[in-house]
């Protein structure tokens, strides 16, 4: 690990100001940042410890919830209101990492965790995300875990978070504080970026911008499912995952929200898929049509070609479970 300076912030505004300039990083749970610092994938010159900041509570806010950026993943999953009103979020969190990691991992840090692309982790490989302009060894290389939607010629990495996929289905908003004292709210739809020509720029955050909270709008009800397909039954990242919220109305699909993990550089959502399902009578043929829309522009890179049929089948399985149709 490279040497760095360490400072403990005592107020959010102070933290943001301290991180405004230079190679400075916030550290919260540390479970992603320290992992990457040990490998010198991340080489900050200064760490600002935000763990003492007053951002640890989950509070009711209108019909919704405000989740402090430091709320650990395990506490969020176990919160009674989240379990009752946003079960897709509890389920997504519980499907991620391990008990020990969830105790440490924070809501803000989880949103900003970086890709698990092997070449991103391997400093001798070419990687446009780690070293802009160096190339991408995943294209034409080992890319079994890589993206099939929204990729670019520069990067085909995925965003690894389970939590963020559920938050995307729930239309969460991310509240931040900038170094000059402004409070911002970013809809999660716009928060993470597609790789384009600059895969090193992963979110809309500007330097020093501190995540202070995540807002969940009023509960949607309905059947909520988080289905994660992975290489082993526990403690593995998603190959494909789906967060679904579905209501039924007299035998027809009412509202439907679908967000996808493991397939893109950000939690993926395509409202045209939802529009094709809403108001229809559920059937295997309908689910197939929805998958056609979802995967119209999907592109495999060799080892990850299997994700295209896998996404189709996972979608059908989730929709069948949510609507009570047997396939």
């Amino acid at each position: 690990m490279r040497p760095f300076d360490y400072t403990r912030a005592t107020a959010p505004q102070e933290a943001a100001a301290m991180a405004a300039a230079g190679a400075t990083k916030f550290i919260a749970g540390g479970t992603n940042l320290l992992d990457l610092m040990k490998l010198q994938v991340e080489t900050p010159e200064k760490l600002v410890d935000v763990t003492r900041l007053p951002m640890k509570d989950i509070v009711a806010e209108g019909d919704g919830l405000k989740i402090g950026a430091l709320v650990p993943n395990s506490d969020l999953a176990a919160d009674e209101r989240v379990r009752r009103d946003y079960p897709v979020l509890s389920r997504a969190l519980l499907a991620g990492a391990s008990g020990q990691l969830r105790n440490k991992a924070t809501t803000g840090g989880n949103l900003l965790q970086r890709t698990r692309c092997y070449y991103f982790y391997e400093t001798s490989a070419r990687c446009n995300k780690r070293e802009p302009g160096s190339g991408c060894d995943a294209i034409g290389g080992f890319n079994r875990i890589h993206a099939i939607l929204g990729t670019s010629d520069a990067c085909i990495a995925t965003h690894p978070s389970d939590m963020a996929v559920a938050m995307r289905a729930l239309d969460a908003e991310i509240e931040t504080l900038t170094p000059d004292g402004a409070t911002k709210r970013h809809p999660i739809a716009d928060f993470h970026r597609l790789p384009g020509d600059t895969p090193n720029v992963e979110t809309v955050l500007s330097p020093g911008e501190l995540i202070t909270a995540v807002h969940l709008p009023a509960p949607l009800g309905g059947t909520q499912i988080y289905r994660k397909v992975r290489d082993r039954a526990s403690y593995a990242f998603a190959l494909v995952s789906i967060a679904a919220v579905v209501t039924m109305d007299a035998g027809k699909i009412g509202t439907v929200r679908l967000a996808f993990g493991g397939v893109a550089h950000k939690p993926w959502r395509n409202e045209a898929v939802e529009a094709a399902l809403a108001g229809e009578t559920p059937s295997a043929a309908l689910f197939d049509k929805a998958a056609d829309i979802l995967l119209a522009e999907a592109k495999g890179f060799g080892e990850n070609d299997f994700k295209i049929p896998l996404a189709r089948r996972t979608l059908a399985a989730v929709l069948a479970e949510a609507t009570g149709v047997s396939l």
Binding site: I27, T31, L34, G99, Q100
Partner: peptide, 13 residues
């Protein structure tokens, strides 16, 4: 009282 991985945290924290 909470279980965590001691390898992924700094002592100073």
């Amino acid at each position: 009282g909470r279980r965590v991985n001691s390898c992924l945290t700094l002592a100073v924290m």
